[in-house]
Simulated scan of single mutants.
Amino acid sequence: MVFPEIKISDAAQVGRMLGASWESASTPFIRLHDDVAISHVGVLEIPMQLMGQNIIAGGIHAVCTHPEYRRRGYYREIMKEVLDYCNSRYDTLVLTTAQPELYQPFGFRVVKEHIFIAKSDSVGSQGFRLIDTSDPNDVKLLHRLLETREPVSNIVGIVNEKAVFCVNEGRNPLYYAPDLDVIICMEIKDTQLQLFDVVGTRICTLAEILERINIRIQEVAIYFSPDCLNADVQALSHILDGDSLLMVRGNFAAEGEKFMLPRSARC
């Protein structure tokens, strides 16, 4: 009801089918009216690498109140409970939003993000196949790589996280390169490659990815810091989807660096 454009029920069902449900990963804070949930804030744990250091961040997600019960203070009450819960557990909280004004009173601040553009003139050979999320062997492969993945970036990267990845990317095409043993989250629009995540025990270079795409690529847009890709890039200030602002509360070691929190890890 609150987020119809993202079809969150469908995304959550995909996460369950992939064996990484939000119900098992999220701690819900809820207000009820006659046993019906009317306001909710969820807290997820997101294992991250920031500037080469591993941390567990708290991810604030699915913040919503039933339209008929808004402006009664439920959201503020729940957020106070959430912060009391998180303050003793996490030094860093993250969320993404199109409405930063809702979170600034609670100590959250917007952190600038960047997209990275690389020029190319590449035509490779066919080296990827689509992951079949209905195939148990492919689901097992996905779990193995998510559990053992190397961070896609030493500036801001994700390690051993499944629930947010499966909800965010489970409905999108996932490409597997058997010889590299990596799963790539990518889209191709005309001659531009859009690169959203690389999941593997070794992060391959951009050249290795391009060598396995059998159409001409003239530009690559990278939606995470490409420090591990061995690529010549130009960094540009960017807001994902035009309104998905990253906000943090507490320590965030990568603040001031050029990076983007991967789409697969945004909540």
Results as ranks from 00 to 15, higher is better:
Ala221Trp: 12
Ser244Ile: 09
Pro226Val: 01
Tyr175Leu: 12
Cys166Ala: 12
Ser244Lys: 10
Ile222Trp: 04
Gln218Pro: 11
Val167Gly: 11
Ile184Ala: 02
Gly170Tyr: 06
Ser237Arg: 09
Ala207Gly: 09
Arg171Phe: 06
Ser237Cys: 11
Ala253Leu: 15
Val182Ala: 10
Ile184Arg: 01
Arg212Gln: 01
Gln218Ala: 04
Ile215Gly: 06
Leu240Trp: 13
Asn251Gln: 13
Asp227Cys: 05
Ala231Ile: 00
His238Leu: 08
Val164Asp: 08
Thr205Cys: 04
Ile184Asn: 00
Val248Cys: 10
Leu229Trp: 03
Asp179Phe: 03
Cys228Lys: 14
Asn230Ala: 12
Cys166Trp: 05
Arg216Phe: 00
Glu169Thr: 10
Asp232Ala: 07
Leu206Asn: 06
Glu169Ile: 03
Tyr176Ile: 01
Ala177Asp: 12
Leu240Lys: 10
Cys185Glu: 11
Asp190Ser: 12
Val199Phe: 10
Leu236Thr: 13
Val164Ile: 15
Asn172Ile: 08
Met186Gln: 12
Asp179Asn: 11
Val248Ser: 08
Cys185Asp: 12
Met186Ile: 06
Ala221Leu: 08
Met247Ile: 06
Phe224Gln: 04
Ile183Phe: 08
Pro173Ser: 06
Ile203Tyr: 07
Asp227Val: 04
Glu219Gln: 15
Ala221Ile: 06
Leu246Met: 08
Met186Ser: 13
Asn230Pro: 10
Pro178Gln: 09
Asp227Leu: 04
Gly256Lys: 07
Asp232Arg: 04
Met247Cys: 09
Pro173Glu: 07
Asp197Ile: 01
Val220Ser: 02
Pro226Ser: 03
Phe165Gly: 04
Cys228Thr: 14
Ile209Trp: 02
Asn230Ser: 12
Phe252Leu: 05
Gly256Phe: 09
Asp179Gln: 11
Lys189Phe: 15
Ala177Gln: 02
Tyr223Val: 04
Gln192Met: 14
Val233Gly: 04
Thr205His: 06
Gln192Arg: 13
Asp181Arg: 00
Pro226Glu: 02
Asp181Met: 01
Val199Leu: 11
Ile222Arg: 03
Asp241Ser: 11
Tyr175His: 15
Ile217Met: 03
Ala253Thr: 12
Phe224Ile: 03
Ser244Gln: 13
Ile209Asp: 00
Ala163Gly: 15
Ala163Trp: 14
Val182Gln: 08
Val248Tyr: 09
Thr201Leu: 08
Leu236Gly: 07
Gln194Ile: 12
Glu169Val: 04
Ile183Val: 15
Leu193Cys: 07
Ile184Glu: 01
Arg249Gln: 13
Ala254Cys: 11
Val233Ala: 03
Ile239Lys: 05
Ala207Leu: 07
Gln218Ile: 05
Ala254Gly: 12
Ile222Gln: 05
Gly250Leu: 03
Phe252Thr: 06
Glu219Ala: 08
